[in-house]
Computed example of a mutant assay.
Amino acid sequence: MLKNISVVLFRTKYPENVGSTARAMKNMDCSNLILVTPPLWSMDRAMPLATAKAHVIVEEARICPDLNTALAGQTKIYGTTARTGGRRKGVLTPATAAPLIVQQLKNGEKVALVFGPEDKGLTNKETQLCSRLINIPTSDESSSLNLSQAVLILLYECFKEALDAPFTPSGPPEERPTTFEEQEILAANLQETLLAIDFLKEDNSDYWMLPVKRFMARIDIKRNEFNLLMGICRQIKWIIEKSKKIIDNEPERPSQ
């Protein structure tokens, strides 16, 4: 899906951040990683953060001596920046950049996303090589993002934009609503249970059950919830019957 996106890490200081970036890339179906003069490169330190599925991204990462070499062959370059204003005008957010990037990918272009060093980011000299700049909005109180977090946010927006259909979480199918017959069965069992625990009185219990039935209608009970409530009623009635038998079998105390 994002096969023609390259993540370019310029002078990344910590190998662990390279590993966690590779993991984020794998999550978003992006596999092209380019490292530009990493000062303390160690594959052994990067691998644990990449986790097993992203090891191949670290192993196949291309290491380049300078940014120009890393960007050779790319057709669109997006640099990331925490600072705006001055020379850094017309800055995009990940959400506004994603439709442009995905359309460019569909047009057969090769897109590079460039991330600067953790402590300083990209300088003006490096941003001049970029077609557009992207800034990730953050709280004023804490604007610093971990490198892999920034990569994940940007790739996620691109991944979401590239989906053929809107993303819907997978999971078990929603339970069906209860039928009229099931609702009546449940109401009758609840009434018996409430009578058994003296919440309702025998005198006119149907009338006092009306608020309970109205409440049940408002919450739209599903079949699995029906089973749950029926089980609770059975358990309560079983405990009451058990308690009655214990009381009935207790020997009478001798009168003093």
Rank of each mutant, 00 (worst) to 15 (best):
I5R: 11
L9C: 07
F10I: 06
T12D: 03
K13R: 11
K13F: 05
D29W: 03
L33G: 02
L33H: 03
P38N: 15
W41Q: 05
M43F: 01
R45M: 09
M47S: 03
P48F: 06
A50D: 01
K53L: 14
A54I: 05
Q74V: 11
K76W: 01
G79D: 01
T81I: 01
G90I: 05
T93S: 14
A95V: 11
T96H: 12
L100K: 11
Q104F: 06
N107I: 09
E109H: 14
G116Y: 14
S131L: 04
I134A: 04
I136Q: 04
P137Q: 12
S142V: 02
V151Y: 01
V151K: 00
L152K: 00
L155M: 07
P166D: 09
T168L: 05
G171D: 11
P172A: 15
E184G: 01
I185N: 07
I185L: 13
L190T: 02
L190E: 05
I197L: 13
S205W: 05
W208R: 11
W208K: 13
M209S: 08
L210G: 10
R214L: 14
I219G: 03
F226I: 02
L229F: 13
L229T: 08
Q235I: 06
S243R: 13
K244T: 11
K245E: 15
E250P: 00
R253Q: 10
R253W: 12
S255H: 10
